[in-house]
Amino acid sequence: MGGTADILFGGLFQGSLYAMMAVGLALVWTTIGVFNFSHGVFMMLGAYFAWQLVTWGLPPFLAFPLSVLAMAGMGWVLQASVVRPLIGRSNLVLVVVITTLAAGSLIENGALEVWGPRSKQIPPLVSGNVMLGSIGVSLHQIAIILVTPLALGALWLFLNRTRLGLALRAVAQNEDASRLVGLNVTMLYGLSFGIAAALAALAGIFLGGYRFMSPVMGVDPLLKALIVVVFGGISSISGPIYAAYLIGFFEAIASYYFGLYWTPALLFAALILTLMVKPEGLFTPNRSRGLA
């Protein structure tokens, strides 16, 4: 039964990372109506920041949350500098693609200046390995599989059970009406970016715990997250989460039966097929944020 365990574990693990990244993209899209192409950078910065704090002697249980918080702040700042001034432009989506891409390149190269190209690693959440059936897995990876639903669940509770979360959902649906009930739309935009960045940072800390970090470590996960939102639709938070796990399992199954060599090609074949049938994504509810 090694195959089943492999697939199950691999799917859950990859799905967790994809979900953490994709949900941030979707959150920003639904609230502000822009696509953040510097999202991967928060992942990288989160990992590096945590590494720096640990190197300075902070214990991981302090360093990790601090880094996540710092990235939330970064997200806010980025939003205020390269997104908010552009709101109201007719070609907002396009211009934000370019400003966030440029900001991403700026931060990436800045990180290269500060931390250098040498690979680094941060301590795992939990060290050690266990045997799971016939395969050996690290406790760190198991921790990721368990922490991810907790983080996403916390986000769900925040959005659905708090007044601030309610405000965030309201802004995503109707900006003018939100102003007319007295919501601080500017603050909510910053908040949505901040939460997205914090989740990406958490994913970065996860990734940095079992793989070597580099200033470009956020690029691939961002690309994957983009594919996840193509699959899952982007106008809801839950769609991308389902899609993330679906793709995680798809990859695990494909690579088990067809090998790593063919997995990307198969994934894209599935993607094209999905889009032919349901261009707005698999899990899109019957509404969408208006965009030409």
Binding site: R169, Q173, A177
Partner: peptide, 9 residues
């Protein structure tokens, strides 16, 4: 107003 919110919301 807010199509996807409930009346309570």
């Amino acid at each position: 107003l807010f199509p996807d919110l409930s009346i309570a919301d």
